[in-house]
Write a protein that binds this DNA or RNA. Structure first.
Length: 574
RNA sequence: CGAGGUGUAGCGCAGUUUGGUAGCGCGCAUGGUUCGGGACCAUGAGGCCGCAAGUUCAAGUCUUGUCACCUCGACCA
């Protein structure tokens, strides 16, 4: 590709409001152009890089016997009514009517389509296990997009669906997909990625893992144990239960005046105790019904993990909005004497606690001497708190630490949620109808590219791994007014093209500095300089983007040298 | 959906306080000089100042409304 003809412009300055490095670099290099909020056009280099990522994904999915297919983007309402998700999913699903007034939607995932396809085609156990996958556009009307291609509304995703007769077979295949994912991320050049246990969310199912790129700008918080390798998303992460000392004598309950001390910090300061000796009430309401109040009681120094709480109460929750009617005294809420109609969840952090301070459900007062085992005789305790840095690993007891990550892929064991609701059955060996067990597996292609750039860059620009680089080589021809330079540049460019090598040739009439700066910014792995200076010795100059390593090679062997260099560099990603 | 912010040339911005000729840098075009790390000189093209209503002799600037985008939160298969 000739740089002068490419529809793209590099710019020195990214827009001021761009905060994420990968987005800034992609905007500066002209890789993406925003069309609307969370909707981007990819220019040639970004599109080629995505294609390269897709091809690596294909190779690895095919290696585990995946069959590439293609589902439609637009689907009728009826398909999604059977599974119930037409109603359970909110406004992130784009819906519209066709010309005949029929309700349609844009696909945001394809479980329903997968079952629809397979339910009359897979009839016998002999056809399983089987996996289908596609690489296709998804639309999700995200409430808030961010980070360029990190979180968008329209994106390309590889999504795969597998069907199995038994849980053992799914377990076995799930492990294979896990391995395939590791290979995919390694091959596209990702370095700091891990897989963590994750929440199954609205997809349903039991076991799930997310592949995460560790980076400060990640939207997810991960809980990691260096000692034993425990890794989990904060949404599901656990820590070792804190042992409470049983030596303390139980005091009797006593109401104390706490003035206008409302939050844990103020109360513990007012009473001169630590936050660990208080019980905090966090108030939620069922989404869409502020009257249906749910209160979580956790130890004062802990924070509520809403994802865990949602699982316990089995409804979608939102922070409660004080209304002055419910009899809830915000800032003085406690378990004793609370309106019985209110649903209450006790966290395991307050089990066995003695002599705690709790709200008195009365303005300006708290209660001292609260002992959980005495006051809450038949209470059940759940795990609804967030793990904090330094708490102990639930497996090995060593300190945990927290890191942020971007989700670059996920794998789910779906179970029979969709095969049951959509009535897909397969005959087993005994001739009995059973609902096959499903797994589903996703990777966002554009997000993978953005994540790579987020991870791989320096002060001059992005550094693209050769496995996915849109152009393997980037020729900077200096002084094209020099006939010799012009001739040799054309010769090398055409020779590389004939070898099937994707090469970018900067043939613009701009200064050397501009060409070098743009080459650095765009991050192609091999830079080739052809100039009057280098040609004087019948040489060209090669510089590796990643290491800055630079050397001269004879003109006559240049083409084959570069070809071999690329083959050699590609070996790392096989 | 809640809080805050921004809309002026393709991109980045100033001008808005105090109403009075539409500006700067980059980029683009033409000519010339340069030429291995974002060169220089000259000339030029490019604007419904987000949109709509209002106040005024006069609105980029003031008022009201509206739309879009950005940041933080909520949400997120």
């Amino acid at each position: 590709m000739l740089m002068s003809k490419m529809v793209l412009q590099t710019v020195k300055q990214a827009p001021n409001d761009v905060t994420i490095l990968s987005q800034s670099l992609m905007m500066r290099a002209g890789f993406i152009k925003s069309v609307a909020n969370g909707i981007y056009t990819l220019t040639m280099p970004a599109q080629l890089a995505c294609q390269n990522i897709e091809n690596i994904i294909r190779e690895e999915m095919n290696r585990i016997d995946g069959q590439e297919i293609k589902f439609p983007v637009v689907m009728p309402k009826e398909l999604w009514e059977i599974s119930g998700r037409y109603y359970s999913i909110g406004s992130e699903m784009a819906r519209f009517k066709d010309r005949n007034g029929r309700d349609m939607l844009l696909g945001m995932t394809h479980e329903e389509a997968a079952v629809h396809l397979c339910k009359n085609l897979i009839l016998s156990y002999a056809q399983l296990p089987s996996m289908i996958y596609q690489i296709q556009t998804k639309f999700r009307d995200e409430p808030r997009c961010r980070g360029g291609l990190i979180r968008v509304r329209e994106f390309t995703m590889k999504d795969a669906y597998s069907f199995h007769m038994t849980q053992e077979d799914l377990d076995d295949y799930y492990y294979k997909v896990h391995y395939a994912y590791e290979r995919i991320f390694q091959r596209i050049g990702m370095k700091r990625f891990i897989s963590v246990k994750s929440d199954t969310g609205m997809m349903g199912g039991s076991v799930a893992h997310e592949f995460m790129l560790l980076t400060d700008v990640g939207e997810d918080t991960l809980v990691l144990c260096d000692a034993c390798g425990y890794k989990a998303n904060m949404e599901v992460a656990d820590s070792k239960a804190v042992e409470t000392s049983s030596t303390e004598l139980e005091q009797s309950l006593e109401q104390v005046y706490t003035a206008d001390a409302k939050d844990i910090e103020q109360v513990s300061k007012y009473l001169d105790i630590t936050a660990e000796k208080t019980i905090k009430a966090v108030v939620y309401a069922v989404k869409g019904d502020n009257e249906k109040v749910i209160i979580a009681f956790v130890r004062g120094d802990k924070e509520v993990n809403e994802a865990k709480l949602k699982k316990v109460v089995k409804v979608n929750i939102v922070p409660w909005e004080a209304d002055g009617e419910s009899g809830i005294v915000a800032g003085n809420i406690g378990p004793i004497g609370l309106n019985k109609k209110i649903q209450v969840v006790y966290d395991k952090s307050i089990k066995n606690a003695v002599n705690m301070v709790v709200g008195a459900n009365k303005a300006d007062f708290h209660i001292k001497g609260f002992c959980t085992s005495r006051e809450l005789k038949n209470a059940e305790f759940y795990d609804v708190i967030k793990v904090k840095e330094g708490e102990l690993c639930p497996i090995c007891g060593k300190p945990l630490h927290l890191e942020n990550g971007i989700e670059i892929g996920n794998i789910f064991q779906l179970g029979t949620k969709y095969t049951t609701s959509m009535n897909m059955t397969v005959l087993n060996k005994e001739g009995k109808e059973i609902n096959p067990i499903m797994g589903c597996y996703g990777i966002g292609v554009g997000r993978a590219l953005a994540s790579l750039i987020q991870e791989s860059n320096d002060e001059n620009g992005m550094i693209l791994p050769i496995s996915i680089a849109p152009f393997k080589a980037h020729i900077c021809a200096l002084r094209l007014d020099d006939e010799n330079v012009s001739t040799e540049t054309n010769k090398l460019y055409n020779s590389l093209k004939e070898k099937g090598i994707s090469v970018l040739c900067d043939d613009r009439n701009v200064s050397a500095g501009v060409k070098f700066a743009d080459a650095d910014l765009m991050g192609m792995p091999i830079r080739i300089v052809i100039s009057p200076k280098s040609l004087k010795n019948n040489e060209i100059e090669i510089t590796l983007r990643k290491t800055r390593e630079s050397y001269k090679i004879p003109l006559e062997t240049a083409s084959s040298y570069i070809e071999n260099l690329i083959l050699d560099m590609m070996k790392e990603y096989k």
